[in-house]
């Protein structure tokens, strides 16, 4: 019988990771530009920024920070878990990360709801009556924190997708196909161990067998999980950490300056 050859999937670990990092550099510049705007306006209106920041609750900001930092931890732990071949633990940590992301958004919703209820939103009558620096502060606050929140939502969607992927995937599949139908009748398939002893034996083929597809599924144990397999998980993690990093700067600049 002709040698069977496994069908290989093309994977480029380094390329995939590099691509995501380059995307993250773009994100850094996007937020960097907004931080420049913030710093210039803060330089021009220090007193107004100081006063406006008073209406932001430091405790809410701290809770946001703790939630995001912890979600970063659970994210990285889920990658460690998959590296060690523990799929269940990986999924648990991933689920916790998604949960913490949602908690962040719920927290954010209540914060903004409260603010908008008090008439503090771009273009509101209350804000238009304030000093120019206060208006600028809240415009920047809503755009920067808003775009950050958008990133959190995108991150949650990505993490949910990868959760599903890990849940159904890391069993690694290989498939061998053979179409030598003339040789098939009268033989049978068998699995033999290293000593040549048959571990499993199938039924003898008759004329109806024309082709054989052999599909091997590996269970996600440590020896079977290659680092190529979880590049998407790693990339989602990188994105999630970037969101965390941006919040690390947003927190002291908006919540801690009064």
């Amino acid at each position: 019988m002709k040698a069977f050859s496994p069908i290989e999937k093309h994977q480029d670990y380094t390329g995939a990771k590099m691509g995501l990092w380059i995307f993250l550099f773009g994100e850094l510049l996007l937020f960097g530009a907004m931080f420049i705007l913030y710093s210039v306006f803060r330089h021009w209106y220090p007193q107004d920024f100081h006063n406006a920041s008073r209406s932001l609750n430091m405790i809410t900001g701290t809770v946001h920070t703790l939630v995001l930092l912890t979600s970063s931890l659970t994210m990285v732990l889920s990658i460690t878990a998959i590296q060690k071949g523990n799929k269940k633990l990986c999924l648990t940590f991933l689920f916790l990360t998604i949960l913490l992301g949602l908690l962040f958004m719920v927290n954010k919703y209540f914060e903004w709801e409260h603010k908008i209820h008090n008439g503090i939103y771009p273009g509101s009558e209350f804000l238009l009556a304030q000093a120019k620096g206060v208006m600028v502060f809240f415009s920047l606050y809503y755009s920067m924190v808003g775009i950050h929140g958008l990133h959190v939502i995108i991150g949650i969607v990505l993490l949910s997708w990868i959760f599903w992927e890990v849940l159904k995937k890391p069993d690694h599949h290989s498939r061998w196909d053979a179409f030598l139908h003339k040789d098939f009748p009268g033989c049978h398939l068998a699995i033999v161990d290293a000593q040549g002893k048959e571990v499993w034996k199938g039924e003898v083929f008759d004329d109806s067998v024309k082709q054989i597809h052999l599909r091997v599924s590996y269970h996600p144990v440590k020896e079977r999980i290659h680092f190529h397999d979880f590049i998407s998980l790693e990339n989602c993690g990188l994105y999630w950490h970037l969101v965390d990093m941006i919040w690390i700067f947003l927190f002291p600049l908006y919540y801690l300056i009064s």
Binding site: S72, M75, V76, L242, D244, I248, F249, I257
Partner: peptide, 17 residues
Amino acid sequence: ALAVAACKCSLVCLFFM
């Protein structure tokens, strides 16, 4: 505040990422 934020970012970048 900025120095501490930079330290935190470095930790996240170097170890978590």
